[in-house]
Amino acid sequence: MEHETLFPLLCETANGNKTAFAELYNLTSAQMYAVALKMLKRPELADEAIQDAYIKIWHNAGQYQRGKGTVFTWMLSIARYRALDLMRYHKVRNEVDLSEDTHSPVSTDESALSDAELQKLEACMGELEPSQRQAIHLAYVNGLSHQEVEAHMASPLGTIKSWIRRGLQSLQRCLSL
Rank of each mutant, 00 (worst) to 15 (best):
M1G: 14
M1H: 10
H3T: 11
L6K: 09
L9G: 10
L10H: 12
L10E: 04
L10T: 14
A14I: 08
N15E: 11
G16D: 06
G16L: 07
G16T: 10
T19A: 13
T19M: 13
T19R: 07
A20V: 05
L24F: 07
Y25I: 03
N26E: 14
L27Q: 06
T28L: 13
S29R: 07
M32P: 01
M32I: 08
Y33I: 04
Y33G: 02
A36Y: 00
M39R: 06
M39G: 00
L40F: 00
L40G: 00
P43G: 00
A46N: 01
I50C: 01
I50K: 00
D52Q: 12
D52Y: 13
A53T: 09
Y54P: 04
I55N: 12
K56Q: 11
K56I: 02
N60V: 02
G62Y: 08
Q63W: 13
Q63I: 13
Q63S: 11
Y64R: 09
Q65P: 06
Q65M: 12
R66G: 13
G67V: 13
G69P: 14
W74G: 09
M75R: 09
S77M: 01
I78K: 11
R80H: 05
Y81M: 13
R82Y: 12
R82L: 08
D85M: 03
D85C: 15
L86R: 11
M87R: 13
R88E: 10
Y89S: 11
Y89K: 10
Y89I: 01
V92C: 11
R93A: 14
E95R: 14
D97C: 02
S99I: 04
S99W: 07
E100M: 15
H103F: 15
H103M: 03
S107F: 12
E110M: 06
S111D: 07
L113V: 01
S114T: 07
S114A: 10
E117G: 05
E117I: 03
L118S: 01
L118C: 02
K120Q: 04
L121N: 06
L121I: 01
A123L: 14
C124T: 04
C124E: 00
M125T: 03
M125F: 03
L128I: 10
E129A: 12
P130T: 10
P130F: 03
S131D: 12
A135C: 03
A135L: 10
I136T: 04
I136N: 01
A139M: 05
A139E: 07
L144F: 09
S145R: 13
H146N: 14
H146P: 09
Q147G: 08
E148V: 11
V149A: 13
V149G: 08
E150M: 11
E150G: 07
A151F: 14
A151Q: 15
M153W: 09
M153V: 12
P156W: 06
P156I: 02
L157I: 12
G158S: 01
K161V: 00
K161I: 06
I164F: 07
R165G: 03
G167E: 05
L168Q: 07
S170M: 06
S170C: 11
Q172F: 08
C174I: 05
L175H: 01
L175R: 04
L175A: 03
